[in-house]
Design a protein around this nucleic acid. Structure first.
Length: 260
DNA sequence: ATGACCTGTTTAACAGGA
């Protein structure tokens, strides 16, 4: 089973690229972030025609997450449990039955947190605290679990072209990295680190300043796996080529293959 | 090079992103 995550930066602007990539990559499950659309305007029928079931948690203008799945949803949860007061659409979770049992998948758009001297940074850290609590609860099920999405966290200095430029950034501050590693330390495994684990493999390149041409990227999109999912992990890959397409998202897909 | 973008929205400048 192939499970992918991609911050598409606007469903309306990205629909042709998304359709092309779905046909090329053919994931069983695709977690999407930054759809920037209300749920009612998400073009579910396009994906249904391609054989996907569609779950959407959108809002006007900003944020918004979705999950496409070839297998039907047993359950869909909109919003991060425990953080019901959050008005931003950043979390969607689904349970999907496979031939070998259920798998739980979340599409996560973690807050950016910049600028760090505004309420946006404490909002990010608070959101991560809620995610940690929820992840801790989910791990108790001892089932295959994939927490996939745009974490807006650069985990280490190897995951950025020039760490010195990011020292005061919400994506790379010690507190941000510590909050991310605290979630991992609950017992989750980063699929990238368990497989590719190389320096300077990026998932985002800014639209500005020729970042793509200079390979000035950062690795901020992650798939975190429970032990039961990690046991079935056999491959991880970044679809870097989509960044070179016309009208690209600033993020590219990253995906895993599980033996289920 | 100090420069350099993209998306959505009350369609004209903003807000927000990373």
């Amino acid at each position: 089973m192939k499970i992918a995550t991609w911050n598409i930066n606007g469903i309306k602007a990205r629909l042709p690229n998304l359709e092309k990539w779905l046909r090329d990559a053919n994931p069983d499950i695709a977690c999407l972030q930054e759809i920037k659309s209300v749920s009612e305007n998400f073009p579910s029928e396009v994906f249904e025609a391609m054989g996907y079931n569609v779950a959407v948690h959108g809002q006007k203008s900003f944020n918004g997450v979705a999950i496409l799945s070839k297998l039907p949803f047993d359950e869909v949860i909109k919003g991060l449990p425990g953080n019901e007061a959050d008005e931003q659409a950043r979390y969607l979770e689904a349970v999907i039955s496979t031939e070998t049992g259920a798998i739980r998948v979340a599409s996560i758009y973690l807050p950016n947190g910049n600028p760090i001297d505004t309420p946006k940074y404490p909002y990010k850290l608070e959101w991560m605290e809620y995610l940690k609590k929820h992840a801790s609860n989910l791990l108790k099920y001892e089932e295959p679990l994939v927490l996939a999405g745009d974490y807006n966290i650069i985990p280490t200095e190897k995951d950025v072209y020039d760490a010195s430029k990011w020292l005061d950034d919400a994506l790379y501050l010690p507190q941000s990295k510590a909050a991310y590693h605290a979630i991992l330390n609950l017992g989750l495994t980063s699929a990238f680190e368990a497989t590719i684990n190389k320096a300077h493999k990026y998932t985002f390149w800014d639209y500005q300043a020729g970042a793509w041409n200079k390979d000035n990227g950062i690795r901020i999109d992650h798939l975190l796996l429970s032990p039961q999912a990690t046991d079935k992990l056999n491959h991880c890959e970044i679809d870097r080529y989509t960044r070179g397409w016309e009208k690209p998202s600033d993020h590219v897909p990253i995906w895993i293959e599980l033996d289920v």
